[in-house]
Amino acid sequence: MSVSNLLENWSEFRHKHPVEDVPHDPYKWAMSIDLDACTGCNACSVACYAENNLPVVGKEKYAHGQAMHWMRIERYWPEDDREFPDQGAQFLPMMCQQCEAAPCETVCPVGATNHTPDGLNSQVYNRCIGSRYCSANCPFKVRYFNWYDYPTTENVWPAEMTQQLNPDITLRGKGVMEKCTFCIQRIRVGQRSVKNEGRVLRDGEVQTACQQVCPTNAITFGNLIDTESKVHQQWKAQRVELAVDEQTKDKEEGGSDLRGYRILEELRPYPSVMYMERVRESAI
């Protein structure tokens, strides 16, 4: 009965995230990206297009800012007096940060985007009505909207290429918001197969497409709860904590020399992606 359910499980319904007392169990998917290793080759972005059936919108729409690159490589140029070719760009791979307290989730009028039990930020295409509030409220601007009906648009997937579309993923029609899912189709397949064996996923059994193709192994993906996982060890080594808006190491006197940080952490979205600062002067 509804009211009694409400009263009996009251404390559960008043539970907040992120939390220390009941962490995600048994999975909390997270990532770490070593910017020092990143060469800006864009392989991750291409892999993402292939894995997730992203529409290739073409030059004109790309220039309009209507590209659908869930995984994008951003270029930054330091403001010094050197010419661009001499100085070289600094690269930042950017994708959905799968925030623990995602600003996009609260504002969706229809609840099309939610926090999953394994700590992801899900997007339900069928439920989305396209108010674009999630994108407006995303500090990272990593949500991409289907401005046109790409599956029926010419040259998005030329005829022979449609054979190459990933059958595990739907095509999104016009008016729907989409974004990086941490390759949730791979995670779910993995989870189901190990469930039959009565165990949890081991590190490396599920890889995201971007991680898989990265030639320099800059991207690490895994279960943050699993103490054996590489991502857990990297987060631990860099002393980056999930449920804080300012890292303990940064509050220490003199700060810390560790490279790990999270982007726009101070806005309290509690992102699940840790970046490791560049030590080289610039790439290439």
């Binding site: 729409k61 800012g65 601007k141 909207f145």
Partner: peptide, 10 residues
């Protein structure tokens, strides 16, 4: 589609 309104990301 909404694209004709000339909106984009961001």
């Amino acid at each position: 589609g909404m694209g004709v309104a000339n909106m984009d990301n961001p």
